[in-house]
Design a protein around this nucleic acid. Structure first.
Lengths: 217, 217
DNA sequence: TTGACCCCGAACCGTACGGTACGGTACATG
DNA sequence: CATGTACCGTACCGTACGGTTCGGGGTCAA
């Protein structure tokens, strides 16, 4: 029934994780319509009865898949050493940007975002809330920690970390994410070939907007 | 363009347009699963037989809905007067930004993008291609015309209009689009309340990156 | 009038899929 | 051994939905 209660405390059992892993594989391969209860049971060598016992219904399976995947993603925290040079911070931002692009262009991320978006409609979007709450918030937290550390160190100037984050995100991603979700081929977008150059340009532009030597405020 | 007019006129008959309009209403109200052949026929007071005759199958209906909606959207061209001041161009960019945000946050656009993304999977994404080809390309064309006019007038400096466009787009939209697609409430994102301020900030930042008085290249 | 179209509404068909029930296996605990 | 727990595999059921067919009505032109 309410898997969420379990989620916070005890993760999924080993067997359940295997099933969810199989579900993710199906999702990546064939999209949402590929997740049928019978198909998942067959792919995971489990019974439909167990599926319904563990996850309640098909919707519960999909939610659990998102929660499970989110639980796997650990955003590496920024090493908050005391003496960090401007170059160190710049490298941190580049690392952050590359991580972000790699995650967002990953097949699992794409598939899960497509799933959540496909389910979203006029009234409520539990899967979308899950993705935003588990995924984006973690990303934003990491970025904001980095931003504020750089500001404390005197390398950046901004009033609102939220606005600075939005700017950084926009410069890094642009409309690449939506284009990938719409099915445009990665090569057409320029990934992963030009990823490094794109990130470098974005960070460069970000520094020109918020770098201490430029910002006028 | 002229051929577009012909195409748009000839594309769908009056009756077919009414049906597609009803389909769009259903889609906005209930998402993709709300479009059943029987339901659409009932909502549009037409027969399923006509549906299949006109559009082939359900997938054809969905494609036609995207094509139909795209044919309705007219990107207003920029008035390319000879003597335009820096303020004129800046106002053009603000107008462009506001138009873009208004379109992307519109319920029909959201619903169609969700539809196309939900259908996209590993092999091919015809609906996504349609949306990109019909929607994004038109937006980009308008933006690039504006960018190059401003560059010719000496107000902007950039090498690659494509990169400049991506930057402008990223600054304007950030991750708002994906968040809306995931079902986040508009008010949470700050629309339409803060739209004007967001656009102004984005254009301001864009000018700081590409404005002739700033750009160092 | 006839007949060629176009279209509506309803009935119909086949099937895929969500969900349930049940019998059978393995293993643990007493 | 007896009992309980957890699970698998399969068969089954109800229904929703894509797609087809058919009867009938309106329009227009010969």
């Amino acid at each position: 029934m309410n898997y969420q209660n379990k989620m916070n405390e005890a993760e999924f059992t080993e067997r359940q994780s295997q099933v969810l892993e199989a579900g993710l594989a199906l999702l990546v391969a064939g999209g949402e319509k590929a997740i049928t209860t019978a198909g998942l049971a067959r792919a995971a060598n489990c019974s439909k009865e167990s599926l319904y016992k563990w996850f309640g219904d098909r919707e519960g399976v999909l939610s659990a898949m998102i929660a499970y995947q989110a639980s796997k993603v650990r955003v590496p925290a920024v090493a908050a050493s005391a003496n960090r040079s401007a170059e160190d911070f710049r490298a941190d931002f580049e690392t952050f940007g590359n991580d972000l692009l790699s995650v967002l262009s990953g097949s699992t991320s794409i598939a899960l975002n497509r799933l959540a978006i496909g389910q979203a409609n006029a009234d409520g979007a539990p899967l979308g809330d899950l993705l935003i709450g588990r995924g984006r918030s973690a990303i934003r937290a990491r970025a904001k920690a980095l931003l504020e550390a750089a500001r404390r160190a005197g390398h950046l100037r901004f009033d609102d970390p939220e606005v600075a984050f939005e700017t950084l995100y926009g410069l890094l991603i642009g409309d690449m994410h939506v284009r990938m979700l719409l099915g445009e081929k990665l090569a057409t977008i320029g990934l992963p070939k030009n990823q490094g150059a794109k990130v470098t340009r974005a960070v460069d532009q970000f520094y020109r907007l918020y770098g201490a030597e430029f910002a006028t405020l």
